[in-house]
Design a protein around this nucleic acid. Structure first.
Length: 469
RNA sequence: GUCCCUAUCGUCUAGCGGUUAGGACAUCGCCCUUUCACGGCGGUAACCGGGGUUCGAGUCCCCGUAGGGACGCCA
């Protein structure tokens, strides 16, 4: 049997991190098994579904590289099919009309809660001969088996058993005739020949109901794999107050797609002690058995670490490709400075995010307005101007603007002045970058270019002079 | 409340009856160092509690406890 998995989000918002990981697992399994990955949009709730959300989900998946083989299939395009199956259930005696009003059901629930019972429909219209009330559009309910139990082998959780007595007759069609979630999922998973339903474990309780409907329809059930949810850093349910929850927000904050994928795949799944997985490795090594049963909390620091790992180890050209968005977003004009790839090579060990890498490389392209106050206080002494002047003349004389040549000038200047590099180095760095954090001096100056280097040293000399007054 | 599920360092996890309970992030030292970083070496740190089963339980079973999820004419 061909492996076919699916990701079935409802378009009521952006693609959040939990959904993204579920999609990733589902995608990985399909790819690993040489199967197919279907994207289905569960938009039967017309009130809350929006095209903007569909676009956001598509954008998020594209950014992560989770390509689908079929879809997006919209459930709203399949209403005729659902109606057909619902009718089939009616005809075979597996479903019936229920004329209870919402108010009536609310009362029933309240009463049951008060008696400390599990709130559930009592089946009052199940085999009723009563005359339907006037003017009430009925809903259609599924006739859930009364006895026995539903048992299924979850590929992640193991055997799960629920007694049918715990289940009630769920609504499969609303009074306006539209199908409900549990109905559409069943029909779709059957029609689309889904072999493995990989989804969040908040659906675990729906599974026995869906299995019952599938059986009533005479179909075999797919395999199920319920993956645990992702928690916030505090172990609480993930929400906006935890910071980034949408996948695109991670992009915006400067994470590489590779890093987010790697982080996500290790959250709730493992392959021994391995931490770093390329996309190909993930596909090769992924297994449903490796998925954990307990929910896991996201951890900023580890994401930072992985992100930096990829910024350091991805080919600079690849980093540049992802950097472009941030360059544009931060309105940095890179035409008047060094190649971005060179900046990446020089800076990659210094930043945890692409955002910070761009923000921290500004001085290569634009003159900074202020010097870092602390650095100035510590390093710009009265004698500093003389040091800078000496370095300046040495650098000015250079015809070969290479790391080696620049390094040589700096060393010679120190010897000539009879000072340690600790005196000249920091001053030079502040003069040329405005602060005390940059790649090694020779690389920094080389990237800056001779002209820019000299003018900035000049400016620093003037700045120091002005301070002495 | 009822049902379902879960439980190893702060966090992500390895472990699949016999281990000095391993790795990673974070943290703390030391080293490297022209800044910031990177890197290297080392340290602190965990089997939720109680009963069983067994020669032997982190590993299997039961009961607690704690957390999560579900209980909609939402998905």
């Amino acid at each position: 049997m061909k492996v076919r998995t699916r990701f079935a989000p409802s378009p009521t918002g952006y693609l959040h991190i939990g959904g993204a990981r579920t999609a990733l697992f589902s995608w990985l399994y399909a790819r690993k098994m040489g199967g197919e990955f279907v994207l289905r949009i569960e938009d039967t709730d017309r009130e809350r579904s929006t095209q903007a959300s569909v676009d956001a989900i598509l954008e998020g998946m594209a950014w992560m590289g989770l390509d689908h083989d079929e879809g997006p299939i919209y459930q709203t395009d399949r209403f005729e099919r659902y109606k057909e199956v619902i009718q089939q259930l009616m005809d075979s005696g597996h479903a019936y009309y229920c004329y209870c009003s919402k108010e009536e059901l609310d009362e029933l629930r309240a009463a049951q809660m008060q008696r400390k019972e599990k709130p559930r429909y009592d089946g009052r219209w199940r085999d009723s001969d009563a005359t339907p009330p006037e003017g009430v559009e009925p809903v259609i309910r599924f006739k859930n088996p009364l006895d026995g139990a539903v048992e299924f082998d979850d590929l992640v959780r193991g055997k799960i058993t629920v007694r049918n007595a715990e289940l009630d007759d769920l609504i499969i069609a609303r009074s306006d005739g539209t199908p409900t979630y549990n109905m559409t999922v069943v029909v779709d998973d059957i029609d689309m020949e889904i072999s493995h339903v990989i989804r969040g474990d908040d659906h675990i309780n729906n599974t026995p109901r869906q299995i019952n409907i599938m059986r009533a329809l005479g179909y075999d059930t797919p395999q199920f794999a319920h993956v645990p949810m992702i928690l916030g850093p505090d172990g609480q349910r993930l929400s906006k107050r935890h910071g980034a929850v949408s996948v695109m927000q991670y992009r915006d904050e400067g994470y590489t797609a590779e890093a987010l994928m790697n982080y996500l795949v290790r959250l709730g799944w493992s392959h021994g002690d391995q931490e770093i997985f390329s996309r190909d490795e993930m596909v090769e090594l992924f297994s449903l058995e490796g998925i954990n049963r307990a929910p896991s909390a996201i951890n900023q620091d580890k994401l930072f670490w992985i992100n930096q790992h990829y910024i350091k180890s991805l080919p600079p050209a690849e980093v540049v490709a992802q950097l472009e968005w941030h360059v544009a977003n931060q309105q940095l004009d890179t035409r008047s400075g060094p190649e971005l790839a060179d900046v990446v090579s020089a800076q990659c060990e210094r930043f945890k995010t692409l955002h910070d890498l761009v923000a921290g490389s500004r001085y290569f392209y634009e003159d900074f307005t202020d010097y870092d106050e602390k650095s100035v206080k510590k390093q710009f002494k009265s004698a500093t101007a003389d040091y800078l002047r000496a370095a300046r003349s040495g650098l000015e004389a250079l015809t070969d603007w290479s790391d080696e040549a620049i390094h040589g000038v700096i060393e010679q200047t120190c010897e000539q002045l009879e000072v340690k590099l600790g005196k000249l180095g920091p001053a030079l760095r502040i003069a040329t970058t405005g602060g005390s954090s940059s790649p090694s001096l020779e690389i920094t100056l080389r990237l800056l270019g001779q002209e820019r280097t000299l003018s900035r040293i000049e400016r620093a000399i003037e700045f120091i002079a002005a301070r002495q007054v």
